[in-house]
Nucleic acid binder design. Structure first.
Lengths: 349, 349
DNA sequence: CTGAAAGCGCTTACAG
DNA sequence: CTGAAAGCGCTTACAG
């Protein structure tokens, strides 16, 4: 079956230059017209049993692999959906991506993944490039893009889902949660618990729009309530746990008055807890620690981490479903979905 | 610049059906032949300044995005390199992918990502599909594939790099480390430290070939040295820290004689350490714990985790470089690279 | 430096 | 159920 004849192998060996086995080769071998081979592959029921068998045999013997590029060009159907995220190092995006992958794959689509590294210029370039594959739709993280990116996307004339955060204005469709409200909810919780000097710790918060919104939500809530204040600690380098580890040390040494820290994500928060364990600092006695995302790890550290759980897989799945529906020509009633979040109060606050 | 005329917009709006702005549209607008537009885009220096400017203007006005499919079909050059990994949930693969991404991107290639979920049948299907994009080369994790997968890959006639583990036999090229030797190194260390009943904890070890090799390396070394024994704990569900957390409890309850645990990865090992903290179990006093991979987190837990550091980014970069060199027609002297590993002895053993 | 012709490997309509 | 013709949007030679 998988053993092409020497000749076929020689042919196949030249693939990607010219000389790969083509539809016509199969047609010649099976003594039918090329279009019949095409049908036998794409709509087998439209071909007689006899021919279908002969064609299948020829395909196997020659080791024929259809050229999707040619197919896509001729039919104007790509089967590849671009997904653009700011980063792959962040588990959160990976989980969303998995949700997307699961969903589109069962419908026969392939994912073309691009990462912008939180750089809006790179994002614009990526969008332009990926649009060049004439995709049936596009999935892109976030609601904030350069004007030229938005223009490209709008003019592409294909459905677009912006996922991750929920907001009032989107290019086409939107699935996510309100990071502003999530920040406010955490502020509410910390204030209720009696904390009054609250630090927000992030990395490159200026670039990380969603973290920025969480900070603003928190900030606003603290102002509203009064009698408390916040500080923003914006680190410029490093990742995850290391930042949290460093941040706890910095804060205790330089801003000892601070009594609670809300980290931009669970990884940092866990880093801070690990540091506290190592140095024998009481959490939440001396200082409270909270995170964001609800990673499994957050429940396992001691003290268990108070955090906000975001439904990441759900975001991915729903974004993909919405897009596929529109690709299929449906007109979903709603184009914006708030998937919500859940404040999970544990031991660290 | 980014503001196409109403007409152009209407045209563009139909993209992905028929009716997108094409090379010919641009050519007509600029009053040149299509081929000149093609040159102005691909080899700008081969076109006079005057024409180049006119063409640029037309491109901007119309909002032209070249159809890469057509380009690829005509030139037999794809610019998309498929990368196949068993999982995206595992940070380790993500880091390798980042190394690949960084490398191929600067050379103008795009990554087409596929995940097999450790299923060899899915892998075969994925390889077939991705080969349909007539890629210039292929990157695939692991050395173990179904015969039909290997045949497809061999017959594709394009360079292939199998990355992750290093082994004697590969389809074409190989970059990775010897997991067998890594397992042996950890066994050596544990034995030297005086541990005699050693457990190896993994998830679906049968499917995770590399974890399996680490176990075998450990097992062999233990047999060679004598006077010690090992047990394999193979969990079937769950992920990362949760498994580690559960495993520690299970082992202490059911196999109290065990004095050291070597986990298939750092996440599980950290989960076990977190459990030990929570339950007040002395590590390494009561039981030693070791991991694999060298994730940042492993250095931050208390006690700090003994682990084996694998150079993941390096694997990605080198695999990509090797592939690109071959795509460029070079004949690298070596086709197999052992990137090695480093045993990092810390507090937990 | 610029262009007319042919073709990449498929599929869409249109016939029979 | 099967096929001959035309075309998808580009690029590769080959001319001038």
């Amino acid at each position: 079956m998988d053993k092409p004849s020497p000749t076929a192998r020689a042919r196949a060996a030249k693939r990607a230059g010219r000389g790969a086995v083509t539809l016509s080769d199969v047609a010649a071998a099976a003594e039918v017209a090329p279009i019949t081979v095409s049908r036998a592959i794409n709509r087998p029921e439209s071909v007689s049993d006899a021919l279908r068998a002969r064609i299948r045999a020829a395909i196997d013997t020659l080791g024929y692999v259809p050229n999707r590029m040619a197919g896509a060009l001729a039919s104007a159907k790509t089967g590849v959906i671009p997904v653009i995220v700011p980063s792959l190092s962040n588990v959160v995006f990976v989980e969303v991506i998995e949700g997307i992958q699961e969903t589109i794959e069962t419908r026969g689509y392939q994912m073309l993944l691009g990462s912008t590294d939180y750089d809006l210029d790179r994002e614009a370039a990526l969008v332009a490039t990926l649009l060049g594959w004439a995709p049936p739709g596009m999935l892109i993280a976030g609601l904030r893009h350069l004007p030229r990116t938005a223009t490209l996307l709008r003019n592409a004339g294909v459905p677009v889902v912006e996922f991750m955060e929920h907001g009032a204005r989107c290019i086409d469709m939107n699935v996510g949660l309100s990071h502003y409200r999530a920040g406010a909810a955490m502020a509410e919780h910390l204030l209720t618990r009696g904390y009054r000097r609250i630090g927000f710790v992030g990395v490159r918060v200026r670039d990380d729009y969603r973290a920025c919104q969480r900070y603003e939500g928190m900030h606003r809530r603290i102002l509203e309530v009064g009698g408390a204040e916040d500080v923003l600690f914006d680190y410029s380098g490093g990742v995850g746990q290391d930042i949290g580890w460093r941040a706890l040390g910095d804060v205790l040494a330089m801003r000892p008055v601070i009594d609670a820290l809300f980290f931009a994500n669970d990884e940092m928060a866990v880093g801070a807890i690990l540091r506290a364990q190592r140095d024998g600092i009481a959490v939440p006695g001396r200082i409270a620690i909270a995170g964001f995302n609800g990673l499994p790890m957050s429940a396992l550290v001691t003290p268990a981490l108070t955090t906000i759980i975001s439904p990441r897989k759900l975001i991915g799945r729903r974004a993909a479903e919405l897009l596929l529906a529109r690709i299929a020509g449906e007109r979903p009633g709603r184009r914006r979905f708030d998937v919500g979040f859940r404040l999970e109060v544990r031991e660290s606050t």
